[in-house]
């Protein structure tokens, strides 16, 4: 598989603080790679080093097979970046902003007009082209920010937390747009601290903490790292201590917690745990309201590996 980005032993410090610590990674052509980690884990710093915006202490970065430097104009022409902070001109309309930033890459006016129209359609801003950024809602503004970053049809796209503070409708629109970009052949590096987005979007995930990679792989590979297989949650209005201790004896159960009428049972492994639980409740004549099972999440993986929540 062809690598679009190769980072080897990247180290970046801010005075005594190591923001990125001996980090190596590869991004394969055509994939969506998720960089997942809490705030301050080094995701954005890594991205800025790859883009040659930041000096770094050590390491080597190649993009499209060549070492990345500030004057790598050939590589830059094929890269699109959507920064975390909205970076548009308040004095330009939606169309003007996209046209301006696209024009830094595409000189031909006709081609540019087509690209700008495509970007507007991709992010669903067809009805707002003549509006100014201050007239847009937070979600629409984020969509404009994305359109400005990808209008020139880049082959490699960095998306840095593009859905922060976005309403559900815009969020879905943005995620659909990202999938479409991948389907059109772009390679995407997606940094976020929203594990749900990573699970929906990413082909491969790298989990960062304190500037280091603590795990990487596909969603399933990462979840396999978690020592739990399944969590079953049951709403039980009343439960005696004897009944509670009975749950701990069920096969494959590793942990039982009962609080405020909600029972949470963690299974280490095993199949059909939900069915077994329903059977157990019937046999023991325990009344319950709702019951559902959950597979482990990336947050469980992160918790397992670092002892803290992703969103800490």
């Amino acid at each position: 598989m062809k690598n679009v980005i190769e980072v080897k032993h990247l180290t970046k410090s801010y005075k005594a603080h190591k923001a990125v610590d001996d980090l190596s990674l590869e991004v394969h052509e055509g994939e969506i790679l998720g960089l997942l980690g809490p705030n301050g884990s080094g995701k954005t710093t890594t991205m800025n080093c790859i883009l040659s915006l930041l000096k770094f202490d050590n390491g080597k970065i190649t993009v499209f097979g060549k070492e990345m430097t500030p004057s790598s104009y050939d590589a830059k022409a094929k890269i699109g970046v959507v920064f975390q902070e909205v970076a548009v001109f308040d004095e330009l309309t939606v169309y003007g902003n996209i046209d301006y930033f696209c024009g830094l890459y595409i000189e031909d006016k006709e081609t540019r007009a087509q690209y700008v129209a495509d970007a507007i359609k991709l992010v669903g801003l067809e009805d707002c082209t003549k509006q100014y950024p201050k007239q847009l809602s937070g979600g629409l503004l984020r969509r404009l920010n994305i359109a400005c970053g990808i209008a020139h049809k880049p082959k490699l796209i960095f998306l840095d937390e593009p859905t922060v503070a976005v309403d559900p409708q815009s969020r879905n629109n943005i995620l659909d747009g990202i999938k479409k970009l991948r389907d059109d052949g772009a390679t995407i590096v997606y940094t976020t601290h929203y594990m749900e987005e990573v699970e929906i979007l990413c082909d491969r995930v790298i989990i960062l903490d304190r500037g280091k990679i603590i795990a990487s792989g596909t969603n399933d590979e990462l979840k396999a790292l978690a020592k739990i297989e399944e969590k079953v949650t049951v709403e039980i209005p009343e439960l005696s201590p004897k009944q509670l201790s009975g749950f701990e004896k069920i096969k494959n159960v590793s942990e039982v917690e009962y609080d405020n009428g909600v029972l949470k049972v963690v299974y280490r492994r095993g199949k059909n745990n939900l069915g077994d639980m329903i059977e157990y409740l019937k046999e023991n004549r325990i009344n319950y309201d709702k019951i559902f099972a959950e597979r482990p999440t990336l947050n469980d993986v992160f918790l397992e590996l670092t002892g803290k929540e992703l969103r800490d």
Partner: peptide, 10 residues
Amino acid sequence: NRGKRVAIAP
């Protein structure tokens, strides 16, 4: 941030 956009452009 607009400066960042300009800096990454070719």
